[in-house]
């Protein structure tokens, strides 16, 4: 709990900070306390600690988010196959039920921890922290956290990762960023997956999808790719290489949209 560091200050509310913790009496004699704390304070606090943990181990942690079935696990399989000799990787899988995805990853010789959330629609920083107890991070270069398939809730929870990667499969429609603005505004990289289907789908325009991302004031790169077309994956691999290099050089990294409180706390 950071009572003193002003964890949840944003430009919009900074003027209120002086009132923090002030106790006043209302006209009926009740006590009224100005709190000014983020409702996700506990999560943000844990996320900051997760990030410190990743930084100490020199691990780049990426949060993969998308609808169910957009190809997150397939992309990880293709990435492991292509970059397995270059980097040591590990995966945290989030699903409501089953070990299926973790088993697919382990079958490729990469350690994977499955978080089954039960009815919960998202991963949070505490779940990731618990999963880290079951994962040896020494020597790992890249940790992928595959979030629960959901375009709404996962965007609200900082996990302590370094960047958000949002997948949008071309079968879902190019207006998804306009329909789910909180998710696509948070993306540091947008991948238009299953791009081989563009040959048979005439109503998905990658340029229109990118325009919807820009309309969320988001400068994130937008890349079309398909695991069935290995050449199309090169830009994604280059982005990963650049991100790992940035992490290794000690560049402070955090997702584009990150609670101000966590940033201040980590400092």
């Amino acid at each position: 709990m950071c009572d003193t560091c002003g964890c949840s200050i944003t430009p919009a509310n900074a003027h209120l900070v002086q009132a923090r913790g002030k106790l006043e009496r209302t006209s009926e004699g009740k006590a009224s306390v100005e709190v000014l704390a983020s409702l996700l304070h506990e999560n943000d606090h844990q996320a900051a600690h997760n990030r410190e943990h990743f930084d100490r181990h020199g691990v780049l942690a990426l949060n993969l988010m998308s609808s169910p079935g957009s190809g997150k696990t397939s992309l990880l399989e293709a990435t492991i196959d292509a970059l397995g000799g270059e980097y040591s990787m590990a995966v945290i899988e989030g699903d409501l039920e089953t070990e299926n995805d973790a088993e697919r990853i382990r079958a490729r010789g990469v350690p994977a921890v499955q978080i089954t959330t039960g009815q919960a629609c998202h991963l949070d920083a505490h779940m990731v922290h618990d999963a880290l107890h079951a994962l040896e991070l020494d020597g790992v270069d890249l940790l992928f956290i595959e979030n629960v398939g959901n375009l709404v809730c996962p965007a609200s929870f900082d996990l302590g990762h370094h960047a958000n990667v949002a997948l949008l499969s071309v079968t879902e429609g190019d207006d998804k960023p306009a329909k789910y603005p909180v998710m696509f505004r948070a993306a540091d990289l947008v991948l238009l997956s299953k791009s081989d289907f563009l040959d048979v789908i005439d109503d998905f325009d990658p340029a229109r999808a990118e325009r919807h991302v820009r309309e969320l004031a988001n400068p994130a790169p937008v890349q079309a790719l398909s695991v069935r077309r290995p050449d199309s994956l090169q830009a994604w691999f280059d982005w990963l290489r650049a991100a790992v290099a940035a992490r290794r050089s000690g560049t402070a990294m955090a997702p584009r949209i990150q609670p101000d409180g966590a940033a201040l706390h980590a400092g």
Partner: peptide, 20 residues
């Protein structure tokens, strides 16, 4: 589109009134 969001991301607990 090169804008900065200055308000709209808040998820804040502002005040609690309680009986002491």
């Amino acid at each position: 589109w090169r804008v900065e969001v200055v308000e709209g991301e808040e998820l804040l607990l502002l005040t609690i009134d309680m009986e002491t």
